[in-house]
Design a protein around this nucleic acid. Sequence first.
DNA 1: CCTGTTCTACGAATATCTTCGTAAACAAAT
DNA 2: ATTTGTTTACGAAGATATTCGTAGAACAGG
Lengths: 127, 127
Amino acid sequence: MNKQVKPTESELEILGILWERGASTVREVHEILEQSKEAGYTTTLKLMQIMHEKGLLKRDASAKTHIYEASVSQERTQQQLLNKMIDTVFNGSATQLVMQALGHHRSSPEELDRIRQYLNEMEKKQS
Amino acid sequence: MNKQVKPTESELEILGILWERGASTVREVHEILEQSKEAGYTTTLKLMQIMHEKGLLKRDASAKTHIYEASVSQERTQQQLLNKMIDTVFNGSATQLVMQALGHHRSSPEELDRIRQYLNEMEKKQS
DNA sequence: CCTGTTCTACGAATATCTTCGTAAACAAAT
DNA sequence: ATTTGTTTACGAAGATATTCGTAGAACAGG
Protein backbone atom coordinates (compact mmCIF):
# COMPACT_ATOMS: atom_id res chain seq x y z
CA MET A 1 0.00 0.00 0.00
CA ASN A 2 1.64 3.19 -1.13
CA LYS A 3 0.78 5.66 1.55
CA GLN A 4 -0.21 8.83 -0.12
CA VAL A 5 1.38 12.22 0.35
CA LYS A 6 -0.92 14.67 2.04
CA PRO A 7 -1.56 17.67 -0.19
CA THR A 8 -1.44 21.13 1.36
CA GLU A 9 -4.20 23.67 1.09
CA SER A 10 -2.85 25.31 -2.06
CA GLU A 11 -2.02 21.99 -3.60
CA LEU A 12 -5.59 20.87 -3.14
CA GLU A 13 -6.84 23.85 -5.08
CA ILE A 14 -4.64 22.90 -7.98
CA LEU A 15 -5.62 19.25 -7.79
CA GLY A 16 -9.25 20.31 -7.85
CA ILE A 17 -8.71 22.18 -11.07
CA LEU A 18 -6.84 19.32 -12.68
CA TRP A 19 -9.46 16.77 -11.66
CA GLU A 20 -12.09 18.87 -13.30
CA ARG A 21 -10.21 19.85 -16.44
CA GLY A 22 -7.93 16.92 -16.94
CA ALA A 23 -4.40 17.43 -18.25
CA SER A 24 -3.55 21.12 -18.45
CA THR A 25 -0.71 23.58 -18.77
CA VAL A 26 0.47 25.77 -15.93
CA ARG A 27 -1.00 28.77 -17.70
CA GLU A 28 -4.43 27.21 -17.88
CA VAL A 29 -4.42 26.23 -14.24
CA HIS A 30 -3.14 29.62 -13.27
CA GLU A 31 -5.86 31.42 -15.17
CA ILE A 32 -8.53 29.58 -13.23
CA LEU A 33 -6.75 29.96 -9.93
CA GLU A 34 -6.55 33.69 -10.48
CA GLN A 35 -10.31 34.02 -10.54
CA SER A 36 -10.58 33.14 -6.89
CA LYS A 37 -7.17 34.11 -5.60
CA GLU A 38 -4.37 36.60 -5.89
CA ALA A 39 -1.26 34.88 -7.20
CA GLY A 40 1.67 35.40 -9.54
CA TYR A 41 2.27 33.05 -12.42
CA THR A 42 5.61 31.79 -11.18
CA THR A 43 3.99 30.97 -7.87
CA THR A 44 1.62 28.59 -9.55
CA LEU A 45 4.45 27.18 -11.61
CA LYS A 46 6.61 26.53 -8.59
CA LEU A 47 3.76 24.87 -6.74
CA MET A 48 3.09 22.53 -9.60
CA GLN A 49 6.78 21.68 -9.91
CA ILE A 50 6.88 20.79 -6.24
CA MET A 51 3.76 18.71 -6.58
CA HIS A 52 5.44 16.87 -9.41
CA GLU A 53 8.45 16.13 -7.21
CA LYS A 54 6.17 14.88 -4.46
CA GLY A 55 4.43 12.58 -6.90
CA LEU A 56 1.09 14.36 -6.81
CA LEU A 57 1.29 15.27 -10.50
CA LYS A 58 2.65 13.64 -13.61
CA ARG A 59 3.82 15.72 -16.49
CA ASP A 60 4.63 15.45 -20.13
CA ALA A 61 7.76 17.52 -20.68
CA SER A 62 8.33 16.56 -24.28
CA ALA A 63 7.19 19.88 -25.63
CA LYS A 64 8.39 23.23 -24.41
CA THR A 65 5.15 23.89 -22.61
CA HIS A 66 4.72 21.05 -20.16
CA ILE A 67 1.42 19.36 -19.60
CA TYR A 68 0.46 18.42 -16.08
CA GLU A 69 -2.02 15.89 -14.84
CA ALA A 70 -3.09 14.68 -11.41
CA SER A 71 -1.44 11.39 -10.51
CA VAL A 72 -3.57 10.79 -7.45
CA SER A 73 -7.23 10.03 -7.91
CA GLN A 74 -9.88 12.36 -6.65
CA GLU A 75 -11.68 9.54 -4.89
CA ARG A 76 -8.64 8.27 -3.06
CA THR A 77 -7.77 11.77 -1.93
CA GLN A 78 -11.32 12.46 -0.84
CA GLN A 79 -11.27 9.30 1.22
CA GLN A 80 -7.94 10.16 2.79
CA LEU A 81 -9.13 13.57 3.88
CA LEU A 82 -12.52 12.33 5.02
CA ASN A 83 -10.95 9.70 7.22
CA LYS A 84 -8.70 12.21 8.88
CA MET A 85 -11.56 14.61 9.39
CA ILE A 86 -13.94 12.03 10.80
CA ASP A 87 -11.21 10.98 13.13
CA THR A 88 -10.10 14.33 14.51
CA VAL A 89 -13.21 16.46 14.25
CA PHE A 90 -16.19 14.12 14.32
CA ASN A 91 -15.19 11.77 17.13
CA GLY A 92 -14.76 8.93 14.68
CA SER A 93 -18.40 8.93 13.63
CA ALA A 94 -19.09 9.02 9.91
CA THR A 95 -22.80 9.27 10.68
CA GLN A 96 -22.25 12.47 12.58
CA LEU A 97 -20.37 13.93 9.65
CA VAL A 98 -23.09 12.90 7.22
CA MET A 99 -25.85 14.54 9.21
CA GLN A 100 -23.88 17.69 9.71
CA ALA A 101 -23.21 17.89 6.01
CA LEU A 102 -26.83 17.35 5.09
CA GLY A 103 -28.13 19.78 7.65
CA HIS A 104 -26.42 22.81 6.28
CA HIS A 105 -26.53 22.32 2.56
CA ARG A 106 -29.77 22.63 0.68
CA SER A 107 -30.06 19.38 -1.21
CA SER A 108 -32.72 18.90 -3.84
CA PRO A 109 -35.34 16.15 -3.38
CA GLU A 110 -33.64 14.29 -6.21
CA GLU A 111 -30.37 14.25 -4.36
CA LEU A 112 -32.06 13.12 -1.19
CA ASP A 113 -33.57 10.25 -3.15
CA ARG A 114 -30.22 9.26 -4.49
CA ILE A 115 -28.91 9.09 -0.98
CA ARG A 116 -31.86 6.95 0.11
CA GLN A 117 -31.20 4.53 -2.71
CA TYR A 118 -27.61 4.42 -1.70
CA LEU A 119 -28.54 3.61 1.87
CA ASN A 120 -30.74 0.76 0.73
CA GLU A 121 -28.04 -0.74 -1.42
CA MET A 122 -25.63 -0.63 1.45
CA GLU A 123 -28.01 -2.40 3.73
CA LYS A 124 -28.50 -5.19 1.25
CA LYS A 125 -24.81 -5.75 0.88
CA GLN A 126 -24.17 -6.00 4.58
CA SER A 127 -26.22 -8.87 5.93
CA MET B 1 -20.40 37.81 11.07
CA ASN B 2 -17.31 36.98 13.03
CA LYS B 3 -15.26 35.05 10.57
CA GLN B 4 -13.64 32.24 12.42
CA VAL B 5 -9.95 31.52 12.62
CA LYS B 6 -9.01 28.30 10.94
CA PRO B 7 -7.38 25.95 13.43
CA THR B 8 -4.24 24.13 12.37
CA GLU B 9 -3.75 20.40 12.58
CA SER B 10 -2.26 20.43 16.07
CA GLU B 11 -4.76 22.95 17.27
CA LEU B 12 -7.57 20.70 16.19
CA GLU B 13 -6.23 17.89 18.32
CA ILE B 14 -6.30 20.14 21.35
CA LEU B 15 -9.75 21.44 20.53
CA GLY B 16 -10.95 17.87 20.25
CA ILE B 17 -9.74 17.12 23.73
CA LEU B 18 -11.31 20.25 25.19
CA TRP B 19 -14.63 19.61 23.48
CA GLU B 20 -14.71 16.19 25.03
CA ARG B 21 -13.47 17.07 28.49
CA GLY B 22 -14.63 20.61 28.91
CA ALA B 23 -12.47 23.13 30.75
CA SER B 24 -9.05 21.71 31.56
CA THR B 25 -5.54 22.61 32.57
CA VAL B 26 -2.59 22.43 30.24
CA ARG B 27 -1.30 19.46 32.16
CA GLU B 28 -4.52 17.52 31.67
CA VAL B 29 -4.64 18.22 27.99
CA HIS B 30 -1.01 17.34 27.61
CA GLU B 31 -1.43 14.03 29.38
CA ILE B 32 -4.05 12.96 26.87
CA LEU B 33 -2.14 14.32 23.93
CA GLU B 34 0.88 12.31 24.98
CA GLN B 35 -0.98 9.05 24.58
CA SER B 36 -1.17 9.46 20.85
CA LYS B 37 1.77 11.72 20.18
CA GLU B 38 5.29 12.56 21.17
CA ALA B 39 5.40 16.06 22.62
CA GLY B 40 7.04 18.09 25.36
CA TYR B 41 4.96 19.84 27.98
CA THR B 42 6.02 23.33 26.99
CA THR B 43 5.06 22.58 23.43
CA THR B 44 1.50 21.95 24.46
CA LEU B 45 1.57 25.00 26.69
CA LYS B 46 2.81 27.25 23.91
CA LEU B 47 0.25 25.90 21.52
CA MET B 48 -2.56 26.63 23.92
CA GLN B 49 -1.25 30.11 24.61
CA ILE B 50 -1.23 30.85 20.90
CA MET B 51 -4.73 29.47 20.56
CA HIS B 52 -5.79 31.81 23.31
CA GLU B 53 -4.31 34.77 21.46
CA LYS B 54 -6.08 33.72 18.30
CA GLY B 55 -9.35 33.54 20.17
CA LEU B 56 -9.79 29.79 19.86
CA LEU B 57 -9.61 29.29 23.62
CA LYS B 58 -10.72 31.25 26.67
CA ARG B 59 -8.93 30.89 29.92
CA ASP B 60 -9.35 31.59 33.56
CA ALA B 61 -6.03 32.93 34.81
CA SER B 62 -7.15 33.83 38.30
CA ALA B 63 -5.31 30.96 39.91
CA LYS B 64 -1.71 30.05 39.28
CA THR B 65 -2.70 27.08 37.19
CA HIS B 66 -4.77 28.45 34.34
CA ILE B 67 -7.90 26.73 33.13
CA TYR B 68 -8.55 26.63 29.41
CA GLU B 69 -11.76 26.08 27.52
CA ALA B 70 -12.70 26.01 23.86
CA SER B 71 -14.28 29.27 22.77
CA VAL B 72 -15.37 27.99 19.38
CA SER B 73 -18.10 25.39 19.25
CA GLN B 74 -17.48 21.96 17.86
CA GLU B 75 -20.44 22.24 15.54
CA ARG B 76 -19.40 25.55 14.07
CA THR B 77 -15.90 24.31 13.50
CA GLN B 78 -17.13 21.11 11.91
CA GLN B 79 -19.27 23.15 9.58
CA GLN B 80 -16.44 25.46 8.66
CA LEU B 81 -14.15 22.60 7.75
CA LEU B 82 -16.85 20.68 5.94
CA ASN B 83 -17.71 23.67 3.80
CA LYS B 84 -14.14 24.16 2.78
CA MET B 85 -13.74 20.51 2.00
CA ILE B 86 -16.94 20.25 -0.01
CA ASP B 87 -15.84 23.28 -1.91
CA THR B 88 -12.30 22.33 -2.81
CA VAL B 89 -12.41 18.55 -2.95
CA PHE B 90 -15.98 17.53 -3.67
CA ASN B 91 -16.85 19.97 -6.45
CA GLY B 92 -19.25 21.79 -4.19
CA SER B 93 -21.54 18.79 -3.79
CA ALA B 94 -22.48 17.82 -0.27
CA THR B 95 -24.25 14.79 -1.67
CA GLN B 96 -21.05 13.51 -3.16
CA LEU B 97 -19.33 13.86 0.17
CA VAL B 98 -22.12 12.06 1.99
CA MET B 99 -22.05 9.08 -0.33
CA GLN B 100 -18.31 8.84 -0.21
CA ALA B 101 -18.40 8.92 3.57
CA LEU B 102 -21.08 6.26 3.79
CA GLY B 103 -19.44 4.02 1.25
CA HIS B 104 -16.26 3.46 3.17
CA HIS B 105 -17.41 3.33 6.75
CA ARG B 106 -19.40 0.42 8.05
CA SER B 107 -22.48 1.95 9.57
CA SER B 108 -24.89 -0.11 11.62
CA PRO B 109 -28.50 -0.50 10.42
CA GLU B 110 -29.54 1.70 13.33
CA GLU B 111 -27.34 4.49 12.12
CA LEU B 112 -28.63 4.12 8.62
CA ASP B 113 -32.14 4.45 9.98
CA ARG B 114 -31.25 7.58 11.81
CA ILE B 115 -29.98 9.05 8.61
CA ARG B 116 -33.17 8.07 6.81
CA GLN B 117 -35.24 9.79 9.45
CA TYR B 118 -33.07 12.81 9.10
CA LEU B 119 -33.60 12.87 5.36
CA ASN B 120 -37.35 12.73 5.82
CA GLU B 121 -37.38 15.58 8.28
CA MET B 122 -35.37 17.70 5.92
CA GLU B 123 -37.73 17.07 3.07
CA LYS B 124 -40.70 18.15 5.17
CA LYS B 125 -39.04 21.38 6.13
CA GLN B 126 -38.27 22.35 2.58
CA SER B 127 -41.82 22.34 1.23
C1' DC C 1 19.10 37.47 -37.65
C1' DC C 2 16.89 40.40 -34.18
C1' DT C 3 13.12 41.44 -30.93
C1' DG C 4 9.59 40.66 -27.92
C1' DT C 5 6.90 37.03 -25.62
C1' DT C 6 6.24 32.78 -23.07
C1' DC C 7 8.01 29.29 -20.67
C1' DT C 8 10.95 26.64 -17.21
C1' DA C 9 14.49 26.43 -13.60
C1' DC C 10 16.53 28.07 -9.62
C1' DG C 11 17.17 30.24 -5.46
C1' DA C 12 15.95 32.99 -1.98
C1' DA C 13 12.82 35.85 0.91
C1' DT C 14 8.71 35.62 3.64
C1' DA C 15 5.24 33.61 6.27
C1' DT C 16 3.35 30.18 9.13
C1' DC C 17 3.60 26.16 12.20
C1' DT C 18 5.92 23.35 15.53
C1' DT C 19 9.10 22.42 18.99
C1' DC C 20 11.68 23.25 22.98
C1' DG C 21 15.23 25.45 26.26
C1' DT C 22 15.59 28.70 29.87
C1' DA C 23 14.16 31.77 33.40
C1' DA C 24 11.13 33.62 36.74
C1' DA C 25 7.04 33.13 39.87
C1' DC C 26 4.98 30.43 43.06
C1' DA C 27 3.84 26.77 46.27
C1' DA C 28 4.67 22.79 49.06
C1' DA C 29 7.82 19.99 51.79
C1' DT C 30 11.73 19.44 54.59
C1' DA D 1 15.01 29.49 54.94
C1' DT D 2 16.33 26.29 51.44
C1' DT D 3 15.21 22.93 48.31
C1' DT D 4 12.23 20.72 45.04
C1' DG D 5 8.67 20.59 41.76
C1' DT D 6 5.05 22.78 38.94
C1' DT D 7 3.60 26.43 36.27
C1' DT D 8 3.72 30.42 33.08
C1' DA D 9 6.21 33.59 29.90
C1' DC D 10 9.43 34.48 26.47
C1' DG D 11 12.21 33.92 22.70
C1' DA D 12 14.31 31.57 19.35
C1' DA D 13 15.50 27.50 16.46
C1' DG D 14 13.75 24.23 13.05
C1' DA D 15 10.49 22.65 9.80
C1' DT D 16 7.29 23.39 6.26
C1' DA D 17 4.59 26.17 3.01
C1' DT D 18 4.06 30.13 0.08
C1' DT D 19 5.51 33.77 -2.78
C1' DC D 20 8.15 35.89 -6.21
C1' DG D 21 12.36 37.93 -8.77
C1' DT D 22 15.67 36.87 -12.13
C1' DA D 23 17.95 34.42 -15.74
C1' DG D 24 18.15 31.70 -19.60
C1' DA D 25 15.99 28.56 -23.16
C1' DA D 26 12.48 28.16 -26.74
C1' DC D 27 9.59 30.10 -29.87
C1' DA D 28 7.00 33.41 -33.17
C1' DG D 29 6.90 37.24 -36.21
C1' DG D 30 8.98 40.50 -38.64
